[in-house]
Structure formats: structure tokens, C-alpha cells
Amino acid sequence: MRLSFIRAGQRNDFLPTGQGAGGGLVPWVIAIMTFLTALALAGGIALASAAGGVATDLGRTATVQILQANPERAAPQLRAVVEALRHEPGVAAVRQLSPAEMRRLLEPWLGAGNVTADLPIPAVVDVRLRPGADAVAIDRRLHSVAADARLDEHGRWLSPLLGLVQLLQWVAAAVVLLVTGAMVAVVALGVRSALVVYQPTIELLHLMGTEDAAIARVFQHRYLGYGLAGGLAGVACAFGVLIGIGLLVGRMGGGAIGTLGLPWHGWAALAVLPLAVALLAMVAARVSVGRALRAQL
């Protein structure tokens, strides 16, 4: 059975608009909770994306240094190392850094003009490893052909950072779950409050033959609207904050912080968040009303 007066507009809705039973506050509370959820969600996704990117970029790279200041003793070792690396099955690419490249890398640290020809600079080979490559075994084999060679796998110093990032992701997920639970509780409390305030009207509708589903529909439509309004407001605020943070990070330049941008699927998740919040509010309202009505005759 349907209730045409519910569809006919607010004038005929048995719940009055914009007043009573805490209904006016519910969209605001939902907006605040959606804002917090959006920030936690965006933070989690951004961290996951940044960690994934860094792990992909750096986790499969390594550097081989020839720790020998004497160029005459370093040169044969460098050639042996490059040759050995080219025959390693776990190595995808080998590139020896030229002295000019080395100077460019050192200049930001030592200052322009301070990297002179007499400065002892280690020979460096940039290595890209294949997935599953055993860096320790490669290092061992390099030692056998060049005593001063040392393989520095980038993923080794990255793992504690990735662990921290993973922990932060779990924290973000927990925040999303907790805020979602609180949102459901707020909706349930709002519905219960409305049921108490409008008990005489609801009892009357029951006595006139209105079915529980029709009464619940009124509440679920109302809370769908609350959820949509609050969700849109909360996500709009979160968008503003995230864009602001993005601009600030952009001004700070590159480096690890520069990789903390929100990927497209993060923006997409935020875009559908109001709908998810609205549906959650609707379902929570429906369940709360259904339970309360079943306790009546």
C-alpha cells in the first residue's frame, strides 16, 4: 500500500517540516560527521596511494657504490660491477651515473661550485631490480668481483616508513567506522525522539489502517533528505580543506610530501560519500522505525 499524501509534498506529510523532535539538528550533526569521515577517508586513501607510489618507485631500485677514493683502483671494480650486474637475472636495468650527474646530485648539499675535481666522489651505479630479486645474493656476488662494492637496496630503509603508513591507514579506517557508527546512533536517536513526539499521530494512522511500511517510508524519506543535505555539506567542506592542503603542499615543492596528493579514486570516493551517507541514514531510520512500530499493536 502506498500513501499518496507522502508523495503529494510536505504539506501532507504527517511529520511537520523544519521543526520538532531534533530533526532540525540531525542534518547538521550528519554534516559534521561526514566532514570527519571524508577527511579520514581522504587521509587513508592519500597515504595508501603515496605509500604505494613510493614503494613502487623506490622498492625496486638499488644503488651500487664503489667505496674507493682512488680512481685508478675504483675504475676496474666499477667495470666489473657493471658487467656482473648486466648478467644478473634479478636486475632489469643498469645505469652508471656520469661524473656530471654526480656533481648535480651533490651540489644542492655541498653548494654550487664546491664540487671540485679533487673531491673524492664514489662511483655510483643505478640499478632497477626485477620483482622478487634477491638483493642480498646480488650484493654477495658483487663482493666477489669488486671488494669495495656495496649494494644499497632502497626498499630496506623504506619498510619502517611503510609500516607507519599502514598503521595510519588502519587508524583512518577505524575513524571512518567509528564516525559511521556514531552517525547511525544519531539517526536512531532522532527517529526515536520523533516517534515519541508524534506518537499520537502515528497511533491514529495505525488505527486508520496505515501499515508499518508506509509510516516507516515517511521517516526513511525524511532521513534520506537529512543524509543527503548533511552529506553534501560535509563533503563540500572536506573538499575545501583538501584543496587547501593540496595547494599548500604544492607550494612546498617536491620530495616525499609532494607525493601526498589524493588520487582520482580518492576524489571519486568523496564524491559518492553524500549518497552513501544518505543511504545509511535512510536504512538506519527504516530499521529504527520498524523496530519501534513492531512493539505497538
Binding site: 502506498r2 499518496s4 503529494a8 504539506r11 501532507n12 504527517f14 499520537p200 489502517g209
Partner: peptide, 24 residues
Amino acid sequence: FRLVPHLSAFDNVALPLRIAGRPE
């Protein structure tokens, strides 16, 4: 009487018909 306080006399009287799904 048990009239719905925020509905007009018209809408109060219309309730049973609307509950029964009659056309507007």
C-alpha cells in the same frame, strides 16, 4: 477528536482516502 494538529481540516478529512490510495 484526535485530529492531526499540523494538517488542515481538508487534509485531516482526506487521510482515510489517501491511506486507501485513492486518486487525488
